[in-house]
Amino acid sequence: MDVSPLRVAVIVGSTREGRVGDTVGKWFTGQAEHREDLVTDVLDLVDFDLPSGLPEHPTHDMKRFARLVDEAEAFVVVTPEYNRSFPASLKQAIDCAYDEWRAKPVGFVSYGYRSQGLYAVEQLRTIFTELHTVTMRDTVAFNLLDGTLFDSDGQVQAVTTLLDALAWWGLALRDARAARPYVC
């Protein structure tokens, strides 16, 4: 049994100018850093030059993103909701990897107006199910209209709930992958 901290990639999915995603991602990782059972690495899609279409041969940044996904043992996707969905930049990044996602847990931190990004999360659950991940039931969600982005004790509790589940699944799946290769 590996007792080292779980390696969690926090993927900031928005690349829009003026976005809130980087702020939400920093807040979330700040909350997660209080835990000794995991270590976070932020994969902000702004830092990757991913092509708008998938080329025949992967680019350097496509390979780099896939390698970082492969090295992670769990994921938290920070996503906005744009027009009741998630951003195209996030889908493009997800599609840069395939086998690298398998048998790992995925949690979600979402934000938007009124619906708190939950429509985006529901669509992402379907995509990550196809990639053979385990998605966490509980999420962290923010309503950008209420003006209290990080002022709620409920949001801190939601982070704890999400990370508790992510750590349990991440460690269980780490042990399972070590015991036998994942078969799909």
Rank of each mutant, 00 (worst) to 15 (best):
L6I: 02
L166E: 06
P58D: 12
Q31R: 12
D49E: 14
G117T: 02
E71A: 14
G117N: 02
P51N: 09
D153P: 11
L124D: 11
T40K: 01
D61P: 04
D175E: 14
R19C: 15
W169C: 05
R67I: 00
K26G: 01
M136P: 00
W169E: 06
V46Y: 06
V42D: 00
T40W: 03
W101T: 08
V8Q: 13
L90A: 08
N143Q: 02
W27G: 08
L166I: 06
M1K: 05
L131K: 12
G21S: 11
R84F: 15
V134Y: 12
P80V: 04
F108L: 11
T160I: 01
L6S: 04
K63M: 13
V46A: 06
R174W: 01
D175P: 00
V109R: 06
G117H: 03
W101C: 07
D2H: 05
T79P: 08
V106D: 02
V109S: 01
T59C: 02
N83K: 10
A120R: 01
L166Y: 00
T161L: 13
S14Y: 06
V42K: 04
V69D: 13
L145P: 00
G107T: 09
A32E: 00
F75P: 08
A179Y: 01
S89C: 07
A172L: 14
L118I: 10
V3Q: 12
A9C: 03
R16I: 00
T139M: 02
T79Q: 09
L68R: 15
A165T: 08
V183N: 02
H60A: 15
D138A: 12
S152E: 03
R102Q: 15
V10H: 09
V78D: 05
D175L: 08
L50C: 13
G53H: 11
T148R: 11
P55Q: 07
C96I: 05
A97Y: 12
G21A: 11
L43W: 10
V106T: 04
A158N: 09
W27E: 08
E100P: 10
G53E: 14
L171I: 03
Q31V: 01
S52N: 13
Q92Y: 01
P80I: 00
A9F: 04
L124Y: 11
R180D: 13
L38W: 01
L124I: 09
P55D: 09
L68K: 14
A165W: 01
Y119E: 07
L50R: 13
D2I: 04
G53Y: 13
G154K: 12
E122Q: 14
V109C: 02
D138I: 00
L173I: 03
T126Q: 10
L124G: 11
Y111V: 03
T160G: 06
L144E: 08
